[in-house]
Design a protein around this nucleic acid. Structure first.
Length: 593
RNA sequence: GCGCCCGUAGCUCAGUUGGAUAGAGCAUCGGCCUUCUAAGCCGGUGGUCGCAGGUUCGAUUCCUGCCGGGCGCGCCA
């Protein structure tokens, strides 16, 4: 099992700490685990480490002195790893690897392919990820789309980090909203039959209600009129919500978002789980009767007040069902519950945090990710949406217009807790202004080069057949270092539940690829008398190192077949990482654009 | 009033959980296609990281208080 270069460096530092501790050069006591990161500036080396500064006070020596000791020991013990180590004030350790070591990164990517970037950090932790959970009272709108894209990406991210993830959609198929849906549909149904009807004040006004009423009229004719009002409305509610749920599933399917479990709120009631939940609370003395209602003592777990579970009229609150639902998630053996919610639900978090604690689980077994609103723009023109009037842009419409790839990328471009401006025109645009095309183009561009290579009978080499000393340009080492960071980006992204980091990473990698493409040729030009040179590799190297040429012109590299081979091999790994990242986000990697 | 989130270039936003001289994209100005996809590249302009304290070797990052913006504070879901 190969070890990531960065972890080799950390290992080397750890070992060195132990050695200098044993030898008495520094009396450290318990050895801390060092951190290493790629520094901002290239002159600070490949990795920088701040361990000397954090250690300074415990070993009672100046940070610079500590750094010096570590630097000399590291160089002594790991000469094959480090080319040089510099100590920079106030105590940074700036480590530079032997340039030839970087080929290991490429070898690892080639070996691991689509699993490059996976980590064990989740250690099999069982996670249930609940997202979208839209009421089946209308079609999905763009806001749901953001939640859907986010949840799907997060699920992939967690799965790639060895979490055991189950995606779940909670269906609010009982209660007042559903009743309202039934009444709205029934009212439209009556209208269709030319009868007097009173449309509910706060009912659903969207045009889809009429469509549903029409299909109900088609199936049932006038038979609903024979039933009592509440039964007829109930019937409408059932059929409408089933229809809408099917539509939601269809929309999500088209968008490439899937769930292991569709969890019905109504089933909680029918299975008596709400009642059992209240029993348990009673047993734990976490509920109370007051003012003719039953309350959950949420304030005992940090919520600002107690919450009603069962109303005066004997019906359950939404919270009661939700507590039963979360209790069931825990009972099913999940270690961590992750909920993706609209930001307007943030006031609900303390209640749910209290819930998991009430059932004896640690507070942090619940993690809530809040998603802020999406504003749709057409250029600079904002598209007004109003749920009240039923005029909102559906996810389906957006996907139809800009495509699933662009929609997902845009949804994942920002941190979820900041408001998102989604410009439909930009998402459709085929230029470098449009980040999704920019990244996909990098992938397609590499494919294109491979196609040309094949046409010219240039074969794609294995990393093992590549001379690492031919990949020594800044752009090449820069690309490799960026590739080396990918596993750490995934890891951080998974732990923080922030898929947008992957989006930014991909844009960065694509930018480096495009720059490299413009600066360095990979395949020899067709007119091969111009620059192909049959010098030895050493000779070629010297020429490359002395390269001249203005910044914006391609450098006249000496393109020996070996150089072409090395570059093709590098590009192959760049393409793998681009594809891995895009796949993780649920976005396709086109071979041709 | 209380609680949560946010405040970084003209605009939209990153900033690797406390690191060194704070970065992208857009916009704007100027360059680069007879050779691997110009859906691309190179360069210029642009900053009191909302303000004031505190914590320490070190703060855009953590703490406190203000200022400004968004949202939430139902026996609604």
């Amino acid at each position: 099992m190969p070890i990531l270069l960065q972890n080799q460096v950390i290992g080397a530092i750890s070992e060195t700490l132990e050695k200098v501790n044993e030898s008495g050069q520094l009396s450290i006591g318990t050895i801390p685990s060092p951190m290493v990161e790629p520094p901002k500036r290239p002159e600070w080396g490949d990795f920088s480490c701040n361990i000397a500064m954090t250690l300074a006070s415990t070993v009672r020596q100046s940070p610079l002195k500590v750094a010096e000791v570590l630097a000399t020991n590291l160089l002594d013990h790991f000469p094959y790893l480090f080319e040089r180590i510099e100590v920079a004030p106030p105590g940074f350790l700036n480590l530079t690897l032997h340039p030839l070591r970087w080929i290991e990164v490429l070898r690892m990517i080639e070996e691991q392919g689509s699993s490059y970037g996976r980590s064990q950090i989740g250690a099999g932790t069982r996670v249930v990820l609940e997202f979208v959970s839209a009421n089946p009272t209308g079609p999905l709108h763009v806001g749901h789309g953001r939640g859907a894209a986010l949840g799907q990406a997060m699920a992939s991210l967690l799965a790639a980090s060895s979490f055991e993830v189950s995606r779940e959609f909670y269906i609010n198929d009982s209660g007042r909203q559903l009743q309202l849906l039934g009444r709205s549909v029934y009212a439209r149904y009556l209208e269709l039959l030319g009868m007097e009807s009173s449309f509910p004040e706060d009912g659903y006004h969207g045009g889809y209600i009429k469509t549903i009423a029409e299909s109900i009229a088609k199936i049932h004719g006038e038979t609903l009129l024979e039933s009592p009002l509440d039964q007829a409305e109930e019937k409408c509610a059932q059929e409408a919500s089933q229809f809408l749920l099917d539509r939601i599933k269809e929309d999500l399917g088209i968008f490439g978002v899937n769930f292991e479990t569709w969890y019905s709120e109504a089933s909680l009631h029918s299975r008596g789980m709400v009642e059992r939940t209240l029993d348990e609370l009673r047993k734990r003395d976490l509920s109370k009767e007051e003012d003719g209602a039953l309350w959950f003592r949420a304030s005992e777990f940090g919520d600002e007040k107690d919450r009603v579970l069962k109303k005066q009229d004997g019906s359950y609150t939404y919270l009661a069902a939700d507590m039963a639902y979360h209790r069931d998630k825990l009972a099913r053996g999940f270690d961590t519950l992750i909920n993706i919610w609209g930001a307007d639900h943030h006031g609900y978090i303390p209640r749910m945090a209290a819930t998991v604690q009430a059932f004896g689980y640690p507070k942090d077994s619940l993690r809530v990710v809040l998603v802020q609103m999406v504003s749709l723009l057409r250029g600079t023109q904002k598209i007004e949406m109003s749920k009240r009037s039923g005029e909102f842009v559906t996810l389906r419409e957006v996907v139809d217009e800009v495509g699933a790839d662009a929609a997902k990328f845009f949804f994942l471009m920002r941190r979820s807790d900041t408001q998102l401006d989604f410009d439909l025109e930009l998402a459709k645009q085929q230029s470098s202004d449009n980040p999704v095309y920019y990244v996909q183009y990098a992938h397609a561009r590499i494919s294109s080069m491979f196609r040309v290579a094949q046409e010219r009978q240039v074969s794609l080499p294995k990393i093992a057949d590549v001379n690492p000393s031919l990949l020594i340009h800044d752009e090449e080492l820069g690309l490799i270092k960026t590739l080396a960071q990918y596993p750490f980006v995934l890891e951080g992204s998974a732990l923080a539940l922030e898929p947008h980091r992957v989006t930014f990473y991909l844009q960065d990698l694509a930018a480096q690829l495009h720059a490299y493409y413009n600066k360095h040729r990979v395949l020899p030009p067709l007119d091969s008398t111009l620059t192909i040179d049959d010098k030895t590799q050493e000779g070629a190297l010297e020429t490359i190192e002395k390269e001249v040429g203005s910044e914006n012109e391609p450098v006249n590299d000496i393109l020996t077949p070996a150089v072409t081979a090395a570059r093709l091999a590098l590009l192959r790994q760049v393409q793998t990482v681009l594809r891995n990242g895009l796949t993780l986000l649920g976005i396709t990697s086109p071979e041709k654009m």
